[in-house]
Structures are given as C-alpha cells and as structure tokens.
Amino acid sequence: MSIIYRPAILAILSIATFLLLWQGLAYSLDSVTLPSPLVVINVLITEITTGELPHHLAITLYRLLLSFSIAMSLGCIIGIILGRHPQLDYFFDNWLVIFLNIPALVAIILCYVWFGLVESAAILAVVINKLPNVIVTIREGTRALDPDLLDMAKCYHFSRMKTLRHVIWPQLHPFFMAATRSGLALIWKIILVVEMLGRSDGMGYQLHLFFQLFDVSSILAYTIAFITIIQAIELCILKPLDRHAQRWR
C-alpha cells in the first residue's frame, strides 16, 4: 500500500490543496472581496489579541450552550413521553408537523415582536427552532426500544428511575447523539441570524457589522474561528462521549 493512502497524510494533503486553491484564486482575482489565506490569518490574530473575537465568541457560545441544553432536555422528556404513549403522540403529531415547518426566520421575528429585543426572546427563538427535531429523533428512539428488555425490567421490579437509567437511556443514546450533532449544526446557523436581527453583541452581530463595512477578511477570520470551535466540540466532547457509551460493544 502506498504511503499516500494513510489517513493522516491524506488529511494534510486535502487541507493543503484547499489552501492552495484559495491562494491561487485570490491571487488571480486580486480583489478585496476575496483576500488570501495569509491576510485572513493576520486579521484573525489581530482580532484575537485585541480581545474582540473572544468576547463575541464567548457570548455566542453561552447562548448556544443555554439554548442547546434547554432544547435537548425538553426534547428528551417530550420525546420519551410521546414515544411511550401512542395516543398522546397521535394528538400532538400535528403540532410537531406545524413546528417542524415554521421557517427559522419566522420563529425569530415572532419571538422578537412578541417578547421584545431581549436575551430571553433570542434564546426562546433558538429553542423553538431546535426543539421539534429533538422530539422527533428521541421519539423514534423510544418507539424502537426493545420490549423484551422492558419486560425483563418489569419482571425484576426495576423502579422507574432504574429502568430509565439502565434500560431505556443506553438504547436512546445513539439517538441522543444524532440529535446533538444535527442540533449543534442547526443551532450554530440559527443563532447567528438571531444575533444579527436583535442583539448588539455576539458573532452574528459582528458578521452583520462586517457585512455593512464590506470587510470580507474579518468575515472569513470569524468563520475560521467558528469552524475551529465546532471541530473542537466534536473532538473533545462528542467523540469521547460516544466512546464512553459504546465501550460495551
């Protein structure tokens, strides 16, 4: 097998090719609307050292964490209840369909109109966008629970908490992780719009500002910071969580 097929080398090659293409394109276009990677890196470093970028990134991360936790915990509870009770599920299924199909922008605008341009309205807008997805995913997982194991738990008098923790939760874990991954990707995108429309700090607000100034270098610098953070969350939090939960396989 050739050395080129090793995953690490392939990864480096692919990133390098990407940067080269970017550099080549920026060089040949020679336009302020597409700065070269080097320029962007310089802006990134300046933004970090002045503390601007960390400040806004921290605010956005805080909003992300808050809305994500609310959406995930509410979604898990409702999803499990709907998955276990078919009649409730029939009743609320239409609600879910409605909420799933509300465009993100509509939910954001309505939240701001009804509750004002405040922090809680921003958080609520993100939660409303994310919640139906979590409910649907966890509900599917709950429907797929192994009835044999539930019977076993009943037969051996497992308490509700014991059943939830040792029988139900491990089976829901893959669904929870799927909801987490798709949820993070979704929330990142929505939270920027929320900040852009009604907040005076955060990454979304900054990007909007740069857009008005036509400052593409800063936009790209912030984007790189973004991508790095998402990857860090995936590698440092989600992957270890996955490994821990899968250790029995």
Binding site: D148, L149, M152, H166, W248, R249
Partner: peptide, 8 residues
C-alpha cells in the same frame, strides 16, 4: 433469550 442488558 437471556435478555441481559448489553451495556452492563
């Protein structure tokens, strides 16, 4: 079937 919890 033994119905053991595979994750325990």
């Amino acid at each position: 079937n033994p119905r053991l919890l595979p994750w325990r």
